[in-house]
Design a protein around this nucleic acid. Structure first.
Length: 449
DNA sequence: CCTGGAGTTGTCCTA
DNA sequence: TTAGGACAACTCCAG
């Protein structure tokens, strides 16, 4: 018997539940479908994806198999492929975004598609309160999530050999130049995981906030495409905790649980991709100044830490987590620009751009999300910069104009009247907390009445 | 149904 | 210099 293994966001051979199910059938036809619905997706993320597909094909060829690429609407492509190869079974890892769920349920009705859970440790519908409703607060969610963990997650090892019928037609795949910072593919993901687990995890608890250090795991693009599975990461984190490999491991595990938390939020509350999770904050009177938005996107707001971060995003398609909060807070609370504008810009530019995590992060910063009482929490970019980039190294790295400015002046050059050729002399706007709080209050009052 | 404790990641003023 | 509490008031969640 032969099964089609339809890959989507699980571009790996290790601990791949859909591959495992296919292998149990016999021969496996690994297929990735270039869905026209994603043609308009971020060019940068597509490059990373295509490189990841090349890498996967290579890994498959080492195991006597290969990757079949097809272009078209998944339903039609799969129907055609079933006929062409006389196959009667399709396996795929369940994906929980609204688009994926709609697509898959339609296909399930017409074709022999079996969805298996592998993207998360717990299925989004499996962690619920006693009353059967989903959690909307992280801490109680994470407690139950942890309590539900089996003693050990049994990970499927990568198979040594995969039998695939020969000569199945495949579309050519464009080749891009490889980004030196994020090399796509499972092998790279595993190398990074090891490196993180035996080096940076020790100081992860503190260093993850430091924008001037490589303190984060930098695994997000790999998790996004399943080049590394969340289950693998969780399993590694637990092992590190068990071996007492630093307090950072527990912090990292919690970060991984945040991913599942937001996957689960998007699953149960799909409206969050369109509007505020908290209905009382769905009517904030945004200023939405286009020129200010352009300045923000291009790293020309005049606030060095904001500009450094936005330029980092533009240049490498990734931004430090602490920096994401700072630029998001600046856009939403200081410029009063709709968080959805920022969300969309991040999706356009982030290699790790993921609907659930990105939306969750933006709604959290905007204060419209699942967080309980944060709307008076407005980041002060200068304080954040001083705290998490003390020497200004992060700023200097991404803003060459400011390279000769001292650590004590670089966070707020305008305060000292420091003028640098080519860099804005003053910030785009003066900080005005009242303006922000008024806008939020307005929304609350509109909804109440 | 009622009750009380708690809520990722802050800021800023005061003592 | 540093530690502590106010910020404003709500909803979630478990008992």
């Amino acid at each position: 018997m032969t099964a089609i293994w339809w890959l989507r966001r699980d571009l790996r051979l290790t601990d791949n539940a859909a591959l495992q199910a296919s292998l149990e059938t016999g021969s496996v036809i690994p297929v990735f479908i270039l869905d026209p619905a994603f043609e308009s997706a971020s060019a940068r993320r597509k490059e990373f994806l295509y490189e990841g597909l090349h890498a996967l094909d290579k890994d498959l060829r080492e195991r006597n198999s290969y990757l079949v690429i097809r272009k078209g609407k998944p339903l039609e492509v799969l129907r055609q492929l079933l006929q062409e190869t006389s196959t009667t079974q399709i396996f795929a890892e369940e994906d929980f975004t609204p688009y994926a769920r709609k697509r898959d349920s339609e296909i399930e009705r017409q074709l022999p598609l079996d969805l298996v859970n592998g993207q998360t440790v717990h299925h989004p519908a499996a962690v619920l309160k006693a009353d059967g409703k989903p959690y909307t607060v992280y801490t109680p969610y994470s407690k139950v999530w942890k309590a539900k963990l089996p003693a050990k997650l049994n990970l499927y090892p990568a198979p040594e050999k995969i039998n695939t019928p020969s000569n199945i037609k495949s579309e050519p795949l464009p080749r891009y130049k490889v980004s030196p910072l994020f090399v796509a593919g499972e092998k790279e993901a595993l190398v990074r995981l090891e490196e993180f687990l035996f080096k940076r995890i020790y100081s992860y608890g503190e260093d993850r906030n430091r924008m001037d250090l490589d303190g984060t795991s930098s695994l997000s693009p790999y998790l996004r495409f399943g080049m590394l599975g969340l289950r693998q990461a969780v399993s590694a984190a637990r092992q590190a905790i068990a071996e007492a490999r630093g307090a950072g491991a527990e912090v990292w595990l919690n970060e991984l649980i945040w991913r599942e938390f937001y996957i689960q939020i998007l699953y149960h509350f799909p409206y969050v991709s369109k509007t505020a999770f908290n209905p009382s904050l769905a009517n904030i009177p945004w200023r939405n100044d286009e020129a200010e938005f352009e300045a923000w996107k291009n790293g020309r707001t005049g606030v060095p830490v904001v500009d450094a971060a936005m330029r980092q995003l533009k240049e490498i398609g990734w931004m430090h987590n602490r920096a994401r909060m700072i630029v998001a807070s600046y856009l939403v609370k200081d410029l009063l620009i709709d968080w959805r504008w920022g969300e969309a810009w991040f999706m356009e530019n982030l290699l790790d751009g993921d609907p659930a995590a990105n939306n969750g992060g933006w709604q959290w910063t905007a204060g419209t999300g699942t967080d309980a009482a944060p709307y008076f929490r407005i980041f002060n970019p200068v304080l954040q910069s001083t705290k998490f980039d003390p020497q200004g190294d992060y700023i200097r790295k991404w803003i060459p104009e400011l390279r000769s400015v001292d650590a004590k002046d670089i966070h707020a050059p305008w305060e000292k009247g420091i003028k640098v050729k080519g860099y804005p002399e003053n910030p785009l706007v003066e900080r005005n907390k009242d303006r922000t709080l008024q806008a939020y209050k307005f929304s609350k009052e509109v909804v109440r009445s």
